[in-house]
Amino acid sequence: MKRYFIMFVIFLVALSLPGTLFHYLSWAGIKPDLPMLWAIYLALHHRPSQGIGYGFIVGLFTDLYIGRYIGLNTITFAVVGFLISFLQQRWYKENIPLTMVLVFIATALGQTLLVLIAKAAGLHWFVGEALQIIIGIAFYNSLLVPITYPLIHRAFTSGCLYKKTEFEQR
C-alpha cells in the first residue's frame, strides 16, 4: 500500500512540475513530459501486463488533471507502457546511456501517437512544427534520465518502491 502511495506522490510531483518549475527551464516553449517519463519508468520495472496497466492509470489521471480530451493520454501512455515493459525484458536496465536512448525513442513514439490520435479525433491542433516539438520533448525527457533514473531504479530494486516476492513476504 505504501509503495502505491509513494508512486502516486511522485506522479503528482511529475504533474505539477512542467507547468511551474519547467516554465523557467523551458527551451523555445518545449518542456519535458514528466507524466510520460514516470509511466516509462514504471513500465521499465514491471511485466508487460502490468506496464500497460500502469500506463493506462497514469495516462487517465493525467487526462483528469488536465480536465479535457479524456482518453488522449490514457491510450497513449498505455501503448507506451506496453512497449517499454515488453522491451525492458531484453534491455540493460542498469545502463544509463541505453536508458536515455530508450526514453528518447519511447517519448518520441508516445508524442507522435498523441498527435495522431488528436488529429484522428478531429482536434484543431497546430501540427506545422509537430516534428520539432516531438523531438524537443523526447530530447528533454532523455536529458532528465541521468538525474532521475539512478534514484528511481535504486528505489525499485532495493528501496521504497521494491516489491517483495511472496517468498520474502513469508
Binding site: 479535457r68 480530451y69 482518453g71 491510450i75 490520435i117 484522428a120
Partner: peptide, 15 residues
C-alpha cells in the same frame, strides 16, 4: 472498441 471509446471520450470532453 478501445479506439472507438477513446475517440468518443476525446470529442465529448473537449475544450
Amino acid at each position: 472498441a478501445l479506439v472507438l471509446i477513446t475517440m468518443t471520450a476525446i470529442r465529448l470532453t473537449g475544450m
